[in-house]
Amino acid sequence: MTTERVSAFSDGMIAVIITILALELKAPEEASLAAILPLWPTAASYLLSYLFIAIIWVNHHHLLHLVRFASPRLIWINFAHLFLVSLLPFTTAWMARTDLAPVPVAVYAGVFVLVNVAYLLFEREVFVQADASAVSHHARHIARRRTLGGVALFALAAVTASALPLLGFLLICCALALYLRPEALVTHGK
């Protein structure tokens, strides 16, 4: 199987996930700006999830450019990763409907942990196939540390959210900042 097929399937899945996420947005019944203010947990949850999915897509795109062929292992890891990403609309809606209550925020952060663990496996499989000249040993090391750091921050957010959900939510935001520039890893060390 070509990497183009894996990329096309992944693009389609991500588009569906974003569509489901957007369908959960409900307009207020009242025709005033004041009616929007109580919806801030929904807006914040949606924005964070949309950003996370966008980051996943950008990082996925950068990694797939490094792959020479789509091995069965890479394909199955990709399926697992996409399955976990598909849980985001559910956890986003739950978190938004409960006004960022502790358990939903903790579960939301837990999904981020699982998505990142799957991403770590995906990243590792890509680097096994990638040409050494495309990604230096040093860049691979930095990428691994970044992903493990992300997993640790998301796990900390899950634990923290149980007692302080807003702080857990903020930790999720901080963890996402680690992934905003995937191209820096590919060009690092050349």
Rank of each mutant, 00 (worst) to 15 (best):
S7Y: 12
S7N: 11
A8P: 01
S10M: 02
S10K: 01
S10W: 03
D11M: 10
D11G: 04
M13G: 08
M13T: 14
M13A: 15
I14N: 00
I14T: 15
A15K: 09
V16I: 15
I17E: 06
I18R: 05
I20E: 01
I20S: 00
L21Y: 03
L21S: 08
A22K: 00
L23F: 13
L23P: 01
E24I: 04
E24H: 10
L25Q: 04
L25R: 09
K26D: 06
A27Q: 13
P28K: 09
P28T: 11
E30G: 10
S32Q: 06
S32D: 07
A35D: 03
I36Y: 15
I36E: 02
L37N: 00
P38F: 08
L39A: 08
L39F: 05
L39C: 02
P41Q: 08
P41Y: 05
T42N: 13
T42G: 14
T42R: 07
T42C: 06
A43G: 10
S45F: 06
S45G: 13
L47C: 10
L48C: 07
S49H: 02
I53N: 00
A54W: 04
A54V: 15
I55P: 00
I55M: 11
I55K: 01
I56T: 12
I56W: 04
W57V: 14
V58H: 11
V58W: 07
H61G: 09
H62N: 15
H62A: 13
H62K: 13
L63K: 08
L63V: 11
L64H: 09
H65D: 09
H65N: 15
L66A: 07
L66D: 00
V67H: 08
R68H: 14
F69Y: 14
F69V: 15
S71D: 09
S71Y: 05
S71H: 12
P72I: 01
R73A: 14
L74I: 12
L74M: 02
W76E: 00
W76D: 01
I77T: 08
N78A: 05
A80C: 12
A80G: 15
H81N: 12
F83Q: 05
F83V: 11
V85D: 00
L87T: 04
L87M: 14
L88F: 13
L88T: 14
P89I: 10
F90N: 01
F90E: 03
T91S: 13
T91V: 15
T91Q: 03
A93P: 03
A96Y: 05
A96W: 07
T98P: 01
T98C: 08
T98D: 07
D99K: 10
A101N: 12
A101D: 14
P102C: 10
V103K: 09
V103P: 00
V105F: 04
V105H: 01
V107M: 03
Y108M: 11
A109G: 05
G110T: 06
G110F: 03
G110M: 03
V111F: 07
V111N: 05
V111Q: 02
F112G: 11
F112W: 06
F112L: 13
V113G: 03
L114E: 00
L114G: 04
N116F: 07
V117W: 01
V117M: 02
Y119E: 02
Y119F: 15
L120K: 06
L121A: 13
F122I: 02
R124M: 05
E125R: 08
V126E: 01
V126L: 05
F127R: 11
F127S: 08
F127I: 15
V128E: 06
Q129R: 08
A130W: 12
D131P: 11
D131F: 07
D131I: 14
